[in-house]
Design a protein around this nucleic acid. Structure first.
Length: 191
DNA sequence: ACCGGGATGTTCT
DNA sequence: GAACATCCCGGTG
């Protein structure tokens, strides 16, 4: 079943570990979430919203349950789930998926991926594999028919998830706000 | 396995 | 003008 508004309307540090083992659906592709990172607002120097709202981060400050997609390094898209209260800056970055369905389509969009574990094992890999780009920014995940959904298929989050500092940051690099499924082959890094 | 560098362009100072 | 929530390739050990 689709996740409801209440799931997202919480602190990102609570939402992030709860997203592990949930299912991301985009078109005919599906993947199980195995790695995430939490991002906050004025309290988090690693967040895009640290210095207040800008045109880019507007969605991050809006109502929970939407997708925040941003462009980085001149060529990559990354996708976040907006959470917290409306008006608050909070989101969870999706960093790794285990491919479940639509693998041929994913391979077509990521021709350089040698193995299936290379398809979605990184924040920009998974958006490429699932065909998510800037046009998906602001997509409502709670309402049906948007093309992108988050489902609970009955598999709970791991009882003892892996936890570490976030990856690729300079500011806010010390905060342990990354969670992952231990030992999963579809992580952006071994863990 | 690990490390270093290039690609590529938007965003904000 | 610098930084960037990354990825890929080619070097070396």
């Amino acid at each position: 079943m689709r996740l409801e508004q209440g799931f997202y309307a919480r602190d990102p540090l609570m939402v992030a570990p709860d997203l592990l083992n949930k299912v991301l659906v985009a078109g005919s592709c599906r993947g199980r979430i195995v790695e995430v990172e939490a991002y906050g607002g004025a309290d988090d120097p690693g967040s895009h919203g640290y210095r207040g709202m800008t045109p880019r981060t507007e969605v991050m400050f809006g109502p929970p349950g939407k997708l925040y997609v941003y462009f980085t390094y001149g060529m990559h898209w990354c996708a976040n789930v907006v959470c917290g209260a409306d008006g608050e800056c909070a989101a969870v970055l999706l960093r790794g998926l285990t491919p479940m369905a639509g693998l041929d389509e994913m391979r077509g969009r990521r021709p350089k991926a040698r193995r299936d574990r290379d398809l979605c094992s990184g924040p920009a890999k998974l958006t490429a594999a699932l065909g998510i780009d800037g046009t998906a920014n602001g997509t409502d995940l709670v309402t049906a028919g948007s093309g992108i959904e988050l489902l609970d298929d009955g598999i709970p989050p791991p009882p003892d998830p892996g936890r570490s500092v976030r990856i690729g940051l300079s500011a806010g690099a010390d905060l342990p706000w990354r969670w992952y499924v231990p030992g999963c082959p579809d992580l952006s890094r071994r863990g």
